[in-house]
C-alpha cells in the first residue's frame, strides 16, 4: 500500500510544469524516505532530479518500495482536474500494480474526485552522480535567474557564465551582437530571498545551451531562490528547493570549445 497526502496539492502542478519541456515520461520511485524521480531528456544532455521527502507530506505510507512508470502528459491532464486549493492524495494498491489513483478533496470536503491512471512499463536508466565539492555555488533570486536566461536568449543560443568573487557574469553573442549581464554579490539585504550570495573556491567559466536553462526556469514558482553549482568541465547543477520537502534539481552538460 502506498498513500501520500499533500494539503498543498498545487505543488504537483508546479512540479509537472517544471518538467514538461524536458520529459514526457518518468519513473517515480517511492520508498519510506519519500518520492523521487530521476530522468534525462531524450537527448541525454540534461537530467531532472526531484526529491519529495516523506516527512514533508501531511500523511505518508509506503509499505514496500514501488516504482511507478508515469506518462507525465497524462498525469498533467489529471492534475489539471484539481483546484489549486485541493488536498491531493496519491494512492497505489499492491493488489492493483498497474494503476495509480489521484484523489482531490476541496478544503471544505464537499467535493471529492478520484482519477485512476494507467501506469507504464518504463525501462529507465539511472545515472550515478558523484558527490562533488563545487568550485562555485551561487544563490540568487529565482526570478532574476529566469530574467537573465530569457534576456540572454534574445542574443544567442549559448551563454557563458563566468563567476568570480566579485560577481557572476552572463555573456551571449549572436548575429545581432553581444550582451553581458553582471550581477554583484549583495552587500546586505533585508530579505534572504533577494540576496545574491557567492561561495567560491576558484573562479569558473563555463558555457551552456540557453534552451535548457530556459526549460529549467519553469521551476521558478517552486522557490524564491535558485542555486547554481559549477566546477570546471563538469555539469552545472541548478537547484530549486521545495520548502520543507526536498528539491527540484537539473543537471546540464556544458558546451566545450571545439
Amino acid at each position: 500500500m502506498f498513500e501520500a497526502r499533500l494539503v498543498q496539492g498545487s505543488l504537483l502542478k508546479k512540479i509537472l510544469e517544471a518538467t514538461k519541456d524536458l520529459l514526457t515520461e518518468a519513473t517515480f520511485d517511492c520508498s519510506s524516505t519519500g518520492m523521487s524521480l530521476q530522468a534525462m531528456d531524450s537527448s541525454h544532455v540534461s537530467l531532472v532530479s526531484l526529491m519529495l521527502r516523506s516527512d514533508g507530506f501531511d500523511a505518508y505510507r509506503c509499505d514496500r518500495n514501488l516504482s511507478m512508470g508515469i506518462n507525465l502528459t497524462s498525469m498533467t491532464k489529471i492534475i489539471k482536474c484539481s483546484s489549486n486549493d485541493d488536498v491531493v492524495t496519491i494512492k497505489a494498491d499492491d493488489n492493483n500494480p498497474d494503476t495509480v489513483t489521484f484523489m482531490f478533496e476541496s478544503p471544505n470536503q464537499e467535493k471529492v474526485s478520484d482519477f485512476e491512471m494507467k501506469l507504464m512499463d518504463l525501462d529507465t536508466e539511472h545515472l550515478g552522480i558523484p558527490e562533488t565539492d563545487y568550485s562555485v555555488v551561487v544563490k540568487m533570486p529565482a526570478q532574476e535567474f529566469q530574467r537573465v536566461c530569457r534576456d540572454m536568449s534574445q542574443i544567442g543560443e549559448s551563454v557563458t557564465i563566468c563567476c568570480t568573487k566579485d560577481g557572476i557574469r552572463f555573456s551571449a553573442s549572436g548575429d545581432l551582437g553581444t550582451g553581458n549581464i553582471k550581477i554583484a554579490q549583495s552587500a546586505n539585504v533585508d530579505k534572504e530571498e533577494e540576496a545574491v550570495v557567492i561561495e567560491m573556491q576558484e573562479a569558473v567559466t563555463l558555457t551552456f545551451a540557453l534552451r535548457y536553462l530556459n526549460f529549467f526556469t519553469r521551476a521558478t514558482s517552486l522557490s524564491g531562490q535558485v542555486s547554481l553549482s559549477m566546477s570546471p568541465e563538469v555539469p552545472l547543477v541548478v537547484e530549486y528547493k521545495i520548502a520543507d520537502m526536498g528539491y527540484m534539481r537539473y543537471y546540464l552538460a556544458p558546451k566545450i570549445e571545439d
Partner: peptide, 14 residues
C-alpha cells in the same frame, strides 16, 4: 564554436 557534451560523458549509468 562550442560542442554540446552529454551527461554520459561525466556520469556513469548505474
Amino acid at each position: 564554436d562550442h560542442t554540446q557534451t552529454k551527461l554520459s560523458d561525466y556520469f556513469k549509468v548505474k
